[in-house]
């Protein structure tokens, strides 16, 4: 589904991604871990071109998204993204947040979007918040709405950029719960997180990034049970 070839990204002289080759298949739940500054968020943000790579190609469902000839807006419709800071639109109600993109992009009629929003709010457990504004919600609630907003586009893959890092500890669980349900339903997911418990439980594959490359990867059991590189051992020693 996502095929990454020789991906490089530099900010000025500073190389953040130093040539990544990777394939993510349909239905996989890939969790990316690593120390801060290892390039994991940058890698994720390159996947839907929020960061413009300085080298390499990324193929999504067979289309090279790094090719300027291909319409990135069209491709992004199929790639949902959830941000660390939620980034809900504060001037719109929860329902309007969810309906905006499907309606403005003419993928759904107003009525269809309304029904979709209702179903999604039900699914993330916040049907009573339809007419609330984001500012009136807790962090955990906002993040659940952000997930619903991304799902409204019926994406083929969901990208999560540290979705629980900005949350108070007691709200982390409710967001992870939604993500687990999503995983169980077969959604292809790429998740950057520091939640090792989530990685262990949900991931079909865990990647450890270090200094701009994927230093080690495998099933959660392999990676957490039998880490090979000293860097991973040191990292796990600190976070587990």
């Amino acid at each position: 589904m996502i095929n990454v070839k020789g991906l490089r990204k530099a900010f000025g002289d500073h190389e953040v991604l130093c040539g990544i080759d990777e394939h993510i298949a349909k239905g996989e739940k890939v969790v990316i871990i690593g120390a801060s500054g290892s390039g994991k968020s940058t890698f994720l943000r390159c996947l839907n071109l929020l960061e413009q790579p300085t080298g390499g190609n990324i193929f999504f469902e067979g289309t090279d998204i790094t090719d300027p000839k291909n319409d990135i807006n069209k491709l992004r419709q199929k790639m949902g993204m959830v941000f660390q800071q939620f980034n809900l639109f504060p001037h719109m109600t929860v329902k309007e947040n969810i309906k905006l993109a499907p309606v403005k992009l003419r993928l759904m009629s107003e009525a269809e979007a309304e029904a979709k929003a209702k179903a999604l709010l039900e699914r993330v457990g916040l049907p009573e918040k339809a007419d609330a504004y984001p500012g009136q919600l807790s962090g955990g609630q906002q993040q659940r709405i952000a997930i619903a907003r991304a799902l409204a586009m019926n994406p083929d893959v969901m990208l999560f950029d540290e979705p629980t890092s900005a949350l108070d500890p007691e709200m982390v669980g409710e967001v992870l719960e939604i993500m687990k349900e999503l995983a169980d339903e077969g959604m292809t997911m790429v998740v950057v997180t520091h939640e090792m418990g989530f990685a262990r439980e949900v991931a079909t594959r865990v990647m450890f990034m270090d200094e701009g490359v994927i230093a080690e990867q495998g099933t959660p059991d392999e990676l957490f049970g039998n880490p090979q590189s000293p860097r991973l051992q040191a990292f796990l020693g600190k976070v587990l």
């Binding site: 839907n48 929020l50 807006n73 069209k74 992004r76 419709q77 790639m79 949902g80 993204m81 941000f83 800071q85 980034n87 809900l88 639109f89 905006l100 993109a101 403005k104 992009l105 907003r149 991304a150 586009m153």
Partner: peptide
Amino acid sequence: NAGQMEAGRSLGL
């Protein structure tokens, strides 16, 4: 906040 632009773009707008 730049995140607003990113959120909009990530939805395909």
